[in-house]
Structures are given as structure tokens and as C-alpha cells.
Simulated scan of single mutants.
Amino acid sequence: MSLELEHYCPDCDDDRVFYRAASTTLHLGTKVKWHCPDCDYGFVQVNGEVDTSEA
């Protein structure tokens, strides 16, 4: 799994390269926490399908 992810950051109002802050395996799949290095914004993805980031 990648350590970086290009994603839109609503706090920076631009696309940023997010870094994987944590990862764990659940019964639903793999849970990954991503954080923007330029601000405090972060989001979680579960199995690459569930995404808690702001649209």
C-alpha cells in the first residue's frame, strides 16, 4: 500500500499529497488514516471504499 495519496484538502483549498499516518486491519478491511502535511486536516479510508473526507 502506498505511503502517499494525492487528494483535495478543504482546509488548504487545493490538491495536496497526503501521508499515511496509520493503518490497521479490521473485519471490514484495511483502515487507513491520511493527513495533510500543510494543515491539521485528516480523513479515514476503509478498504478503499469508505471515505470520510469532505466532498
Rank of each mutant, 00 (worst) to 15 (best):
residue 10 P to H: 00
residue 5 L to Y: 06
residue 16 R to T: 02
residue 43 F to H: 04
residue 10 P to C: 00
residue 8 Y to G: 00
residue 22 A to M: 08
residue 40 D to R: 05
residue 44 V to S: 02
residue 30 T to V: 10
residue 39 C to S: 01
residue 17 V to C: 11
residue 49 E to G: 10
residue 24 T to F: 12
residue 46 V to G: 03
residue 27 H to P: 15
residue 22 A to Q: 09
residue 10 P to R: 04
residue 16 R to W: 04
residue 31 K to R: 14
residue 13 D to Y: 11
residue 7 H to I: 00
residue 52 T to W: 08
residue 2 S to C: 10
residue 47 N to T: 00
residue 34 W to A: 04
residue 17 V to W: 07
residue 12 C to W: 05
residue 9 C to E: 00
residue 10 P to G: 03
residue 50 V to E: 15
residue 45 Q to W: 08
residue 40 D to G: 06
residue 34 W to I: 04
residue 52 T to I: 07
residue 44 V to R: 01
residue 39 C to D: 08
residue 20 R to G: 01
residue 12 C to G: 09
residue 15 D to I: 09
residue 27 H to T: 07
residue 25 T to I: 14
residue 19 Y to A: 12
residue 54 E to F: 14
residue 42 G to K: 10
residue 26 L to C: 07
residue 50 V to N: 12
residue 8 Y to V: 01
residue 23 S to N: 05
residue 51 D to Q: 02
residue 48 G to V: 00
residue 17 V to Y: 13
residue 30 T to N: 05
residue 51 D to T: 02
residue 14 D to F: 03
residue 46 V to M: 05
residue 50 V to F: 14
residue 39 C to I: 00
residue 19 Y to D: 10
residue 22 A to W: 13
residue 21 A to P: 10
residue 44 V to N: 06
residue 15 D to M: 13
residue 6 E to A: 09
residue 30 T to Q: 07
residue 32 V to Q: 11
residue 9 C to L: 05
residue 54 E to N: 12
residue 38 D to C: 06
residue 50 V to P: 09
residue 42 G to M: 04
residue 13 D to H: 10
residue 30 T to M: 04
residue 38 D to M: 04
residue 40 D to V: 06
residue 20 R to E: 13
residue 19 Y to E: 15
residue 24 T to V: 10
residue 34 W to Y: 12
residue 35 H to W: 14
residue 38 D to W: 03
residue 3 L to A: 11
residue 44 V to Q: 01
residue 11 D to L: 08
residue 29 G to F: 03
residue 55 A to D: 15
residue 18 F to H: 01
residue 24 T to A: 11
residue 11 D to M: 07
residue 23 S to W: 03
residue 37 P to V: 05
residue 41 Y to C: 06
residue 46 V to L: 03
residue 17 V to I: 10
residue 22 A to H: 11
residue 41 Y to P: 08
residue 4 E to M: 03
residue 29 G to K: 01
residue 24 T to W: 13
residue 2 S to T: 11
residue 50 V to G: 12
residue 46 V to Q: 00
residue 15 D to L: 09
residue 17 V to S: 11
residue 48 G to C: 02
residue 14 D to Y: 05
residue 9 C to W: 06
residue 6 E to K: 14
residue 47 N to I: 00
residue 37 P to Q: 03
residue 52 T to P: 07
residue 28 L to K: 08
residue 49 E to A: 15
residue 29 G to E: 03
residue 3 L to D: 14
residue 28 L to W: 05
residue 7 H to A: 09
residue 45 Q to N: 12
residue 52 T to M: 06
residue 29 G to V: 02
residue 9 C to Y: 04
residue 27 H to I: 12
residue 7 H to C: 06
residue 32 V to P: 09
residue 11 D to G: 03
residue 24 T to L: 15
residue 49 E to K: 14
residue 18 F to G: 00
residue 54 E to I: 13
residue 54 E to L: 14
residue 17 V to T: 09
residue 1 M to I: 14
residue 34 W to M: 06
residue 47 N to K: 00
residue 3 L to S: 13
residue 30 T to S: 05
residue 40 D to Y: 02
residue 35 H to D: 13
residue 20 R to I: 01
residue 41 Y to A: 05
residue 12 C to M: 07
residue 7 H to G: 01
residue 7 H to Y: 14
residue 30 T to K: 07
residue 20 R to H: 00
residue 22 A to E: 10
residue 55 A to F: 15
residue 43 F to S: 01
residue 4 E to T: 05
residue 21 A to R: 11
residue 37 P to W: 01
residue 37 P to F: 04
residue 33 K to C: 07
residue 23 S to P: 05
residue 17 V to M: 13
residue 22 A to S: 15
residue 17 V to P: 10
residue 15 D to P: 09
